[in-house]
Amino acid sequence: MKLPTEIFGEVVVVHTPEELSADTAGQLEAFLTNLDRSQVIIDLNGSETIESGGLEAILNAQETLLALGGDIKISTTNESNRKILEMTRLDQQLEVFETVIDAVKSFAG
């Protein structure tokens, strides 16, 4: 799996595909944990479907990156995606930001 990325200093922004599902979960987790940087922002604005397998992959990747001194944060303005994060309580495990820039700035502090 190859996803579009942007680099902001020590932070990498990963733009997710249209579907985050069990079918792509292993590839997503491998992609997130094999980046050149351990401070990762996942931009969920491109995802129309988010299933439990995709969310599990993000949490597994976060665990790996935390062990490396990094973290994963989420950026999305999509209300449906924000609702999914709230209903699954993942918004309590992952910091969620309105914009990519706000998420990038959060790593500086």
Rank of each mutant, 00 (worst) to 15 (best):
I58E: 03
A67G: 11
I41P: 15
E95S: 03
S47D: 07
E48V: 10
D36Q: 11
D43N: 04
I101D: 07
E63T: 14
E48W: 04
T5H: 08
H15S: 03
F107S: 03
L3Y: 14
I50E: 09
S75Y: 12
A108I: 12
T99N: 04
T49E: 13
A25S: 15
I84C: 01
K2M: 14
R89Q: 11
I50P: 14
E86S: 03
I58G: 05
D36S: 11
L20A: 11
K105Y: 13
A108Y: 13
V11A: 09
G109C: 08
N81G: 12
I50N: 03
L66M: 07
N60C: 04
D43Q: 10
N81M: 09
Q93H: 09
T99V: 08
Q27S: 13
V40H: 01
L35T: 03
F97C: 10
S106N: 06
L59R: 02
I101P: 15
T24S: 12
N78E: 14
L44G: 00
T49P: 02
L66K: 12
E98G: 00
E48C: 00
G9E: 13
E63M: 03
L28Q: 10
T76L: 02
L66Y: 03
K83E: 12
I50T: 06
V100Y: 07
L55I: 08
N34E: 15
A108R: 12
L90C: 15
L55T: 01
E51R: 00
T33D: 05
R37A: 10
T99Q: 04
T88N: 02
A108N: 12
R82K: 01
L55F: 11
L85N: 00
D71A: 15
I72T: 08
K2V: 13
E10Q: 11
S80Q: 06
A25I: 15
E18M: 14
I74F: 05
V100H: 08
E56A: 07
S21R: 10
F107A: 00
Q62C: 07
D71M: 09
L32M: 15
S38Q: 01
R82W: 05
E79K: 09
G70V: 00
E63G: 00
L35C: 09
G69H: 04
D71F: 14
E79M: 05
L59M: 13
L68N: 02
I72E: 10
E48N: 03
T76A: 04
F97R: 00
E29T: 09
S52F: 13
G53Y: 12
V11N: 02
T88I: 06
T49L: 05
L32D: 10
E56V: 07
A61P: 15
L44N: 02
T5R: 02
Q62I: 01
I74Q: 01
I42C: 10
P4I: 05
L85F: 13
A108M: 11
L20T: 12
K2L: 15
T49H: 08
V100M: 09
